[in-house]
């Protein structure tokens, strides 16, 4: 159960738990915080959360495996989510996704060879009037049409080198 977390993360964790009438409710927020710091949820993180909240590891594990946003493997440094759902598809999101995959050298829902990028298809991001929408880490980009996709990929590459 050895999991090293930064003091800031631990502080946030200790602040969140008492906000809920029942401790177990803090499973999702704790997993979010750990994933933000570590990039993914490892086995010891699952055990750590279970221990922290007085649960069995399976209670946490079943949550990790259900929710699409939690992952058990590291991904690229920049996470690119393209909306796959109908309104964005009507605006060209499949072509946009293909172009991003090609320009950033990612396989379907996969990570580029040097671990820089992950391009993932996700379901409706609640911005359907401005499709195709692409979320890069936490930032939403609107109207990334197939025509704009190649230039957009170049922008993302620049961001990666700037880091």
């Amino acid at each position: 159960m050895s999991l090293e977390l930064k003091p800031e993360t631990l502080k946030k964790i200790d602040a969140i738990i008492p906000k809920y009438p029942v401790m177990r409710s803090a499973v999702l927020p704790l997993l979010h915080l750990i994933q933000e710091e570590k990039g993914y949820i490892c086995k010891s993180a699952i055990e750590w959360v279970a221990d922290k909240l007085g649960l069995q590891p399976i209670n946490v594990f079943e949550v990790v495996t259900f929710y699409p946003m939690f992952r058990q493997e590291p991904i690229g440094k920049i996470h690119i989510k393209v909306c796959r759902t109908l309104s964005c598809a009507l605006a060209g999101s499949y072509q946009t996704r293909d172009i991003l995959m090609e320009k950033l050298a990612c396989a379907e829902n996969g990570t580029s060879p040097y671990g820089q990028f992950t391009v993932e298809f996700v379901e409706c991001l609640a911005n359907c009037g401005k499709g195709p929408v692409v979320q890069v880490d936490e930032t939403m980009h609107e109207g990334i049409t197939p025509e704009k996709a190649a230039a957009f990929a170049d922008e993302i590459k620049k961001q990666a080198t700037a880091r």
Partner: peptide, 12 residues
């Protein structure tokens, strides 16, 4: 009354 913002994790 307290308000808590609780984030989901991508499940419809």
């Amino acid at each position: 009354c307290e308000i808590v913002v609780h984030r989901g994790a991508g499940a419809y």
